[in-house]
Lab assay of single mutants.
Amino acid sequence: MDEEYDVIVLGTGLTECILSGIMSVNGKKVLHMDRNPYYGGESSSITPLEELYKRFQLLEGPPESMGRGRDWNVDLIPKFLMANGQLVKMLLYTEVTRYLDFKVVEGSFVYKGGKIYKVPSTETEALASNLMGMFEKRRFRKFLVFVANFDENDPKTFEGVDPQTTSMRDVYRKFDLGQDVIDFTGHALALYRTDDYLDQPCLETVNRIKLYSESLARYGKSPYLYPLYGLGELPQGFARLSAIYGGTYMLNKPVDDIIMENGKVVGVKSEGEVARCKQLICDPSYIPDRVRKAGQVIRIICILSHPIKNTNDANSCQIIIPQNQVNRKSDIYVCMISYAHNVAAQGKYIAIASTTVETTDPEKEVEPALELLEPIDQKFVAISDLYEPIDDGCESQVFCSCSYDATTHFETTCNDIKDIYKRMAGTAFDFENMKRKQNDVFGEAEQ
């Protein structure tokens, strides 16, 4: 370990593993360490099931009705991949897709007046949907046509809207959309967690709705994908990429100290040895004095023996409960997957309800979601602090990732990755940087 590296990475969460992969592909010498004996950090999948019970201090362990412990891979952080989103792009560019198998999530649902409705995925579904009345549908269709044709580089498509100054509230007004449709559009399509976006320039919202539609167009059922064997497969896929390009991995490796000289990182000390480096990437748990708390998320993992009611017996789905429907500031989400994804025993389902904490009784906040899941065989409640770095790391060369937020997709995580890359490399992130180099010394032969 007593060696000189360009970059040392602490923690094998998804953000850290993707950055480690990119740095290795770009010719950097990388050492990647984790104090845990497993990959994934906060974003790991726990197996066998006995391990999950232990982690949540349920000492009696799983009953026999849960089947074989080894058949379970339970995500600690519930997220899906947008089919046309940035993480899929990263997987394709790096060819990490060859280590993973994905399934399309069967449906996306939205909560309205105590019931759940399928988010329409085709024009026919939209016309048949009970989510809105006849005239509302016509106006909504006009709005969707506007979004589909919108091109930020072609003012002819703006229809009198200025993407940089017109607020989204004004765009909704222009198409005369009612409150329910606005809730549905902002939260189930643009996937905002709160209503803060309404008074911001509309460009980002329009682009988010386009991303949803384009992702949906790829597979038809929903815009989301999920990897077989759980999300823990993602960091491992990128760790393989890093290793192929010469990255060194050490799990179960305690970090005793991060060594600084004149305010700059110069190395990491572990078990009496020092590895030197020019730059350091880590998750917040490794540098508690360089991060601040930015809120909390509650996630309740529920094991069920039945599909969720009114989802047409889907073996995977997402449910969004827009905040307006339950008098909150932030949406509540449910991600459900099952034995069909090799993450649970035969006939079992895993539904994870999550939201940003707003009160001193977080469990009560998630109740509307839990009511949709009854009866629940077993619950595991996790309340996590969200951390963000206190500075950009440019001076110390210590670059810290943000905690995983309450969103049900990876777009915010990818933004964090691109942002850290830019601060480390001094140049904007470009997907081309992730391409495997042809015929290089570490390149794998085609399968």
Rank of each mutant, 00 (worst) to 15 (best):
Val9Leu: 09
Leu10Gln: 04
Thr12Asn: 00
Gly13Ser: 06
Thr15Glu: 07
Leu19Met: 00
Gly21Cys: 09
Ser24Ala: 03
Gly27Leu: 09
Lys28Met: 12
Arg35Val: 06
Asn36Lys: 05
Pro37Leu: 09
Gly40Ala: 05
Leu52Lys: 03
Lys54Thr: 13
Leu58Ser: 11
Ser65Pro: 09
Arg70Trp: 14
Asp71Met: 13
Asn73Asp: 07
Val74Thr: 05
Leu76Trp: 13
Leu76Met: 00
Ile77Phe: 03
Leu81Ala: 15
Ala83Asp: 00
Asn84Tyr: 03
Gln86His: 07
Lys89Val: 05
Met90Phe: 13
Leu92Ile: 01
Thr97Tyr: 15
Thr97Asp: 09
Gly107Phe: 05
Phe109Ala: 12
Val110Met: 09
Gly114Tyr: 13
Pro120Gln: 00
Pro120His: 13
Pro120Ala: 05
Leu131Arg: 03
Leu131Ser: 13
Glu136Leu: 09
Lys137Gln: 06
Arg138Gln: 08
Phe146His: 13
Lys156Ala: 14
Gly160Leu: 01
Gly160Cys: 08
Thr165Leu: 14
Asp176Asn: 13
Asp180Phe: 14
Val181Thr: 11
Val181Ser: 11
His187Cys: 15
Arg193Cys: 09
Thr194Pro: 05
Thr194Phe: 15
Asp199Ser: 12
Thr205Ala: 11
Glu214Cys: 01
Glu214Met: 01
Leu231Glu: 08
Pro235Asn: 15
Pro235Ala: 11
Ala243Tyr: 15
Gly246Glu: 04
Gly247Leu: 10
Thr248Ile: 10
Met250Asn: 14
Asn252Ala: 04
Lys253Arg: 10
Lys253Gln: 14
Ile259Asn: 01
Asn262Pro: 11
Val266Ser: 01
Val268Leu: 06
Ser270Pro: 03
Glu271Arg: 10
Glu271Gln: 13
Gly272Ile: 15
Glu273Arg: 04
Leu280Phe: 13
Pro284Ile: 14
Ser285Arg: 04
Val291Ile: 15
Lys293Glu: 09
Gln296Ser: 01
Val297Ala: 09
Arg299Thr: 12
Arg299His: 05
Ile301Thr: 11
Cys302Tyr: 07
Leu304Ser: 02
Leu304Pro: 02
Ala314Ser: 07
Asn315Lys: 06
Asn327Phe: 13
Asn327Tyr: 03
Ala345Thr: 08
Gly347Gln: 12
Asp361Glu: 02
Val366Met: 11
Glu367Arg: 14
Ile376Val: 10
Val381Lys: 14
Ala382Asp: 00
Glu388Tyr: 06
Gly393Asp: 04
Ser396Asp: 13
Phe399Val: 05
Cys400Arg: 04
Asp405Ser: 14
Thr412Gly: 01
Thr412Arg: 11
Thr413Met: 15
Cys414Ile: 13
Lys422Asp: 14
Ala428Pro: 14
Phe429Met: 01
Asn439His: 04
Glu444Lys: 11
Ala445Ser: 11
Glu446Gln: 13
